[in-house]
Write a protein that binds this DNA or RNA. Structure first.
Lengths: 195, 195
DNA sequence: GTCTATACTTCGATAGAC
DNA sequence: GTCTATCGAAGTATAGAC
């Protein structure tokens, strides 16, 4: 294995078209629909081109992870720098496209080592950046049963956002309306950081 | 379509073996690995038998959903009837196998209508049963920013449990330790219901 | 540097033998 | 009622032409 097969250039227009098509398929039909044939068809290209630009399908998925993560790191940074960072962060976390993208990749990663490692690294980076921002805003927060570390606060927020969006997509709604209202009140209260 | 092809009996031993194999594959390698060939191989049977007992792969998945859900409804009922229902419910929700099973099916369901509908129906049932039990135990709970309905409480609990387990599986751990400790304290406090 | 012709494997599904 | 022989489509990947 590991023959020295040639690959297309990273900045190729065709390569970008394939990545775009793959991302669209991932969102619309799930990771199982991201096959060389379907990706190519969506981009109006031949299936073999996928393997010219990406040695294996795993490589394509890795490129997808990196590209999506970099874009979202940007978006998150902007949210954290906004006048209402907590609200902006929540809006960012509950964006359906972003949440779907993450959930699909997580499901895929569950059984593909290389992708899992890459996704985990990015996830920790996201959380650390959120935690840092929350720490600056609030320090440790009292929960009524002890203090909450910023990292945990970031986890709670992301977890609830992801599951809300995911269940919405499935058509599960029990408890959502009141949960969203409660979170809205928490964000309202957090609007003006204590320090 | 819809030809009147014959199907095997529901109580067939072979059928059960196939379902067991499918469940194991789903847990170990993800839904994409649940193919007629792999399921059969795992059960030591011929691939064509899958289609004798399940007209389509969707039918196999549906059977898997129903079987898994019925077992878990039982487990949840036992948890709710235990001396420490809140703790038992949390332990049940954070069981890795159960959470993985759910997440895989959710990812699959995202893009398969029939499975999505079935899964959503069961999910609502789980939540309603949890909510009913929590309502009997606590009524509405004060959160510091208004009351929390039992249904929302159930959602929060399940969401956090699922994401904890899922991130653990991916190797993401930021904020988990303190989050688990905080939840443990909450459960401790909830140990003795107020009414 | 870019794309095509082609090979080989695995997929879901059907028709028909026992 | 149970299982097998077989099919056409779709999957990843390689070697080689432009």
């Amino acid at each position: 294995m590991a023959t020295t097969r040639r690959l297309g250039a990273e900045d190729s227009v065709t390569r970008h078209a394939l990545l775009d098509a793959a991302r669209a398929l991932l969102l619309e039909e799930g990771y199982a629909a991201v096959t060389s044939r379907k990706v190519a068809a969506r981009a109006g290209l031949k299936p073999q081109l996928v393997h010219y630009y990406f040695a294996t399908m795993d490589d394509l998925f890795l490129a997808l992870v990196r590209h999506g993560a970099e874009i979202n790191l940007d978006r998150q940074a902007r949210a954290l720098a906004s006048p209402e960072p907590v609200r902006a962060l929540w809006d960012f976390a509950t964006d359906p496209a972003g949440a779907t993208f993450t959930m699909e990749l997580a499901a895929l990663a569950n059984h593909r080592k290389a992708i899992r490692a890459e996704l985990a690294t990015y996830a920790e980076r996201f959380r650390a950046l959120q935690a840092e921002a929350l720490r600056e805003m609030f320090g440790r927060v009292d929960s009524g049963v002890g203090e909450v570390a910023p990292e945990s606060l970031a986890f709670f927020m992301t977890a609830l956002a992801q599951m809300l969006v995911m269940e919405d997509a499935l058509g599960v709604e029990g408890g959502h309306k009141e949960a969203r209202e409660l979170i809205a009140r928490l964000i309202e209260r957090a609007g003006k950081p204590q320090r």
